[in-house]
Structure formats: C-alpha cells, structure tokens
Design a protein around this nucleic acid. Structure first.
Lengths: 258, 258
DNA sequence: CTTCATTTGTTCGTATGTATC
DNA sequence: CGATACATACGAACAAATGAA
C-alpha cells in the first residue's frame, strides 16, 4: 500500500495550482495592496508546507499574470495586475499565423477602432471645453516628426493614453494602450512596410483632440475613423491579395496614399 | 574587465525569460500551430542548453499565457492563446480592492456595455433577416428558468458568445466572453446578493436578439442598455453607500426581485 | 568602498503520479 | 496486465543580485 504519511495532492489538482491559489488567498486575507511585500520563498514553503520548487512555479504563474512582482535579490511584492499578459498572448497569436492571412492583426485594429468609437461620449464629455497642454504638445511633436519623415510611436501611444485618462475608467485606458501595444508590436513583424502617410496620421490625432475639446461628437467619430482608415484599407488590401476572387471595384478610394 | 568566457545571459535578462523566448521562436520557426506537439522537457534542455528547472519555469510562463498547453503524462502542445490570462488577472483585481469601492467591477461592466454597443453594426449586419434556432432556444430557456426563479448563467454566456460568433471577428467574441467571465466571477465574491430581476434580464436578451434580427440598430442599442441597466444601477447604488451622503430615496426600484 | 546577510535565480539528482501502448 | 515515456514534485546546493552595515 501507499504510505499514509505522504502528502495528499488534494482533489486531482496540481500542487502548483493549489499553491498559487493559496498565495492569492494569502494576499486577499492579509489585505495586501499593489506594492506591498509578500513573504519570502522559504517562508511560503513553511506556511504552505510545500517544497521551494512548487512555491517557485506558483509564484512564476502569478508573476506572469502580473499578480505579483518578483525582483531578483530583493523580494516579491503584489503586482499592479496590468494587461501585460493580454498583450503578450495576443502579440504571439498575431505573429503565429501570418501564413494564412492578416486576420489576427485586422481584428486587433478593428477592436481599437471600436473601442475609440464606443468611448466617444465619455471622451468628449471629459475634454469638452478644456485645453490640455500636454496633449497639444504631443500633437505638435507628431506633426514635426511627420514633416521630417520620422515616426512618432512614443507620442502616439502617450496621446491615446492621455486622451483616455480622464474618463473615469482605468480599465478602458489600459485596454486601449494594450491594443495599441499589440498592434504596433505585430505590424512590423509581419514584414510589410507601412504605406501609411505619417503627416496624415499626425493630422488625424490633431483632429481627434480638436473634436473632443470642442464637444463635437460627430466630428470626433469621423476623426477616429479617419485615423484608422489608411491602416484598415491597407489590411483589407493585403487580405484580398490572399484570396483574389474579388475583382476589387475601382470605386474604393480616390487616391492610393503617398 | 569581466571574463569573456562566462556565459552571457544576454541583456541582464533571466535565464528563464530568454528560454521562454527561445521556445516561442522555436514554435514560430518550426511553423507549429495550436495543437501541434512541442519537444519534451529533456529535449528542450538539450537543444537550448539549460537545466530542467529553467525549462520548466519557462514552460510554466508560456502555459500561464495559454501559449502552450501542458498535459500531465502526455506532453506539451501549442496552446490556443485564449484570453484566460486576462480573465484571471482582472478577476483577481476585481476582488482585491473591494474595500475601497466597487470601481473595478463597475469598470468591467461598463466595458461590457461599451463592447456590445460598439459592435452594434457588425452584429445587426450579421443577424439581419436571419433566424438562429439555437439563439431563440437559449432565450426561451432563460425565460423558463427566470419564471421558476432559477438563474441561467450557462445560457447567458452562450447567448453572448453565439450572438458575436458570426461577425467575422473572433477577438471580439473572445473579449466579450472574457469580460462576461470576469463579471460573473467577481460579482458573487463580493458578498452582495443579486437584486436584479431575472425575468427582466431574460426578456432583455430576447429584445437584443429580436432587434438584431429585425435590423433595427436603435432598438438594438436600447436593448443592450436595458440589459445592463439594472446592474449598473445596483453598482452605482452600492458605490454610493460607501459615501452615504445620499439619503437613498426609496424610489430606487419597484421590486426587489423574486 | 567593502563586507555581509537576505532573497531570488539556477542546477542537479531522485522519486512519484499519469497517460499511452 | 506490464512497459515505456512523460510531467510533477521534492530537497539540497550553489550562483547572482540587492541592500544595509
């Protein structure tokens, strides 16, 4: 028979998963908040009665989800629970199946557009009548870089973050930046050059800001659509090349961008 | 200065993270797809020149992100890259800070509403003129359960999934179900009973389906708003209780559910 | 600046549970 | 049923990073 002294795994769960759950419960029951310290690995081994390997794998799981934050030589603290795991997962999904088509990236861009459109009322309400100096400065930097033929990824990202910041929903802002990260991480790895007009993109951001501050919701929606239009058109064109059954009527767009 | 013979970890990265990256690259370069087998742990140790533990922790990281799928005693395969990590992270965030307020849950519900509203055109276009038997069946089940005072979580979840299925954007559907999971996982763990009217909720689902199939976008939006209205109202009321400056008028709701 | 204790990172060896054939 | 291959778990030891004395 089996030795009765051996530890019972429990209910067919792995030790690692149960340990991870115990650590989460410990965080909750201790009332810890993001940034607070978590017991050290040896201490967790004692309190939970498991080996260090299991504790480490459990902590690894939680660290991947940004539930805890591990720093070598320092210790482990409660994490900020950001949307980093979402970004990592979807970036990998986006670069995994480019052989088939650009569906994954197209879906990400579509969701970005849908987000911004859905949050129109919130954004306009938050910016109406106000005048953000940092947002205006970001737009100006984008325009300058565009005129010099330089990209402006950092300013672009910060613009969308600051635009969403004052709407009273942190999750919305984090989702928007997360999908921005996915989008900009996947796009260059697919090996296709950006045919988008930098100046047009920079200008679109200015239009978005102006519309929000002037309280014009319809103008805001149009500016958002303009902002994504060249990208979506490019993705549609690339996707169509994969299955060129459609004759592609010439009435699609007047110009081919430049 | 430093000995050139020592193994360079890279750019101050940990062995585990570089190993995880190498495994991801191996998946990409091998052209593996979800479901395909990944080399066993000992084989990865050989090919990457690292110890078993590092391989295990790297695999643990990837498994947490659903990039790989590990089955005890069988092997490791490429995962489906679902949104499970997002759900886990946000569920924990939702139950972590209920002492302050219900802000996290409120934001989740707001995002659910924003999602559904943002996808109005896509959903209506996909269902207009059609007649889904399974969706109608789900609504009928919800109504029956509601009339018996029983909940209908499974039907509710499947309804939203099937409603979003034919819009040609898998990511949108996965996001909606992910936030449904977050919402329904966090709500009961906050220790507050559901004062929502089951019959009203069941009816709202029917309205959503009818509006989509009849092609009435405005009716669809109104039905979506109706669908979330009792929940949002409850969350607002609970949030207000934290700062009980409001006398809480008795005209809040006609009934207290049954 | 150096020394030292603390904490996480990495490795190895061994034993056990589990799935497939 | 047994045999094989695999993932899971444990424990001990050493390496590397951090921070304080």
């Amino acid at each position: 028979m089996s030795k009765s002294t051996e530890p019972d795994i429990g209910a067919s769960q792995t030790r690692r998963s149960t340990t991870a759950e115990q650590i989460k419960q410990l965080i909750l029951l201790s009332g810890l908040h993001p940034g607070d310290a978590i017991p050290t690995e040896p201490e967790l081994c004692q309190r939970l009665g498991v080996s260090r390997s299991s504790v480490r794998e459990a902590i690894r799981t939680l660290a991947t989800l940004d539930i805890v934050d591990v720093r070598h030589g320092h210790g482990t603290t409660v994490g900020k629970m950001s949307l980093t795991p979402l970004v990592e997962t979807l970036v990998f999904r986006g670069v995994l199946a480019p052989g088939d088509d650009l569906a994954a990236l197209r879906e990400v861009v579509e969701m970005r557009s849908a987000f911004d459109l859905a949050l129109t009322d919130r954004v306009v309400d938050a910016h109406q009548g106000k005048d953000s100096q940092s947002l205006a400065c970001l737009v100006e930097k984008m325009r300058q870089n565009a005129s010099r033929g330089q990209t402006f990824l950092a300013e672009d990202r910060q613009f969308h973050a600051e635009l969403l910041a004052p709407i009273g929903n942190q999750l919305a802002g984090q989702l928007v930046t997360a999908f921005w990260d996915i989008h900009t991480a996947v796009l260059p790895r697919l090996g296709l050059a950006l045919p988008v007009d930098l100046r047009k993109t920079a200008h679109a951001h200015g239009d978005i800001l102006d519309a929000a501050q002037s309280g014009d919701r319809d103008a805001y929606r149009l500016a958002v659509i303009d902002h994504y239009e060249p990208l979506i058109r490019m993705l549609e064109a690339k996707t169509r090349k994969t299955a060129p059954a459609d004759p592609m009527p010439s009435a699609a767009g007047p110009d081919a961008d430049g």
